[in-house]
Amino acid sequence: MPVLPTAPGIARRHVHQTLTEWHLPHHSDDAQLIVSELVTNATKAATVPPPRHSRDAPRLDVVYLGLFRTLATLVIEVWDGNPGCPVLAPATWDGENGRGLHIVTALTSRWGVRRPPSGGKAVWCELPVSRPGAPR
């Protein structure tokens, strides 16, 4: 998706629709919050080099969202073109920033960063999934 202020909202709607189709609507709220944080971080960090064929060609930075399902886990992955790793910074009670990765840590079983051969980074996390009504 293009790096625009609307990207987190587009990503949340996509997650809601996908989890509904996968019969996981009971995980939608947590997944939407996680995706919103990761896409927001990615849009702030996103950089893509200009096309090789023209230095003057306009460019639009992008981020990619991937959702993958196993029997026990929903994997969420967000890629951006910036190779810099996200940092779990101390959050203050009155700060306007710094809570995103704390939210991801609290809601997921684990998260990390991988470096695709194409460049940039992909921040991923695993959200345990269960049947409706089963303990989480």
Rank of each mutant, 00 (worst) to 15 (best):
M1A: 15
P2I: 12
P5L: 11
P5V: 05
P8F: 02
I10F: 10
I10V: 14
A11W: 03
R12Y: 02
R13K: 11
V15D: 03
Q17V: 08
Q17N: 14
L19T: 04
E21K: 13
W22S: 09
W22P: 00
H23T: 12
L24I: 10
H26M: 12
S28H: 03
S28N: 03
D29H: 13
D30R: 03
D30T: 10
E37W: 03
V39A: 03
T40P: 01
T40H: 14
N41Q: 11
N41S: 08
K44W: 06
A46P: 00
A46Q: 09
T47N: 04
V48A: 06
V48P: 05
P49V: 09
P50Q: 07
P51C: 07
H53G: 12
H53L: 15
S54E: 02
A57M: 11
R59G: 09
L60T: 15
D61L: 02
V63I: 15
V63D: 01
Y64I: 06
G66T: 10
R69F: 01
R69E: 12
T70A: 08
T70P: 01
T70Y: 07
L74E: 06
I76D: 01
V78P: 00
W79R: 01
W79E: 04
W79D: 04
N82L: 04
C85R: 11
P86V: 13
P86H: 03
V87H: 13
L88R: 15
A89C: 08
A91I: 09
W93F: 09
E96S: 11
N97R: 14
N97C: 03
R99W: 12
L101M: 01
I103C: 08
I103D: 02
T105M: 07
A106Q: 13
A106T: 09
S109T: 15
S109L: 06
R110M: 06
V113Q: 07
V113R: 06
R115E: 12
R115G: 04
P116A: 09
P117I: 07
S118C: 11
G119K: 07
G119C: 04
K121E: 01
V123T: 14
V123W: 01
W124P: 00
E126N: 11
E126A: 13
E126Y: 01
E126H: 12
L127C: 06
L127P: 04
L127R: 07
P128I: 03
P128N: 00
V129E: 00
S130P: 02
R131D: 14
R131T: 07
A134S: 14
R136K: 11
R136V: 06
